[in-house]
């Protein structure tokens, strides 16, 4: 991308570690139904701004940890925003933000997922701290790298 140095998204580095065998992941820890959430900025908006979207990378990483990975429908380029994008998580319009998230909440409960994997701070906060309570979803929410970190088979180093 740039000549001077590379710019990595969270996916680029995690995929690199997995493909080069630098990390080993245990897929027997997160066996309950899980679903991957497409953040607008990594998907639709990245595609628009840079001509490249990260749709499959996050799923690939999540699938390496979660054998039962499901889809929220619609997804990828047609995915619904969590409701807290564009700075809305920090904005004072919380009623609007929660209402906005109703579509995401419905998708989650329809998927039957008990774990939502979000590769974005903003989406994770909205789904975990707001939608989960407001819509009584009873789910667990993890960052993508939190999922990886919790699935690591630690090398034997002394």
């Amino acid at each position: 991308m740039f000549k001077e140095f590379k710019v990595y998204s969270v996916f680029d580095l995690l995929i690199e570690y997995i493909k080069e065998g630098k990390i080993q992941l245990d897929n027997t820890i997160h066996t309950h139904p899980a679903a991957y959430h497409d953040p607008c900025n990594y998907g639709r908006k990245s595609l628009k701004a840079f001509g490249q979207a990260f749709f499959e990378e996050g799923r690939e990483v999540a699938r390496a940890c979660c054998p039962d990975l499901r889809e929220l429908n619609p997804n990828r380029n047609e995915a619904y925003c969590c409701g807290a994008g564009g700075g809305a998580w920090a904005m004072p319009f919380s009623d609007e933000r929660v209402f906005y998230g109703r579509t995401k909440a419905r998708q989650i409960s329809e998927s039957g997922a008990e774990l939502i994997v979000a590769p974005c701070h903003n989406c994770r906060d909205q789904i975990m701290k707001s939608l989960n309570k407001e819509y009584d979803l009873g789910i667990e929410v993890k960052y993508l790298w939190e999922l990886v970190s919790d699935s690591l088979i630690m090398p034997n180093k002394q």
């Binding site: 607008c40 639709r44 047609e78 925003c81 409701g83 807290a84 564009g86 700075g87 809305a88 904005m91």
Partner: peptide, 12 residues
């Protein structure tokens, strides 16, 4: 414009 999350659903 501040309640909009600029998610881009409209645009796509």
């Amino acid at each position: 414009p501040w309640k909009c999350t600029m998610c881009g659903k409209c645009e796509v």
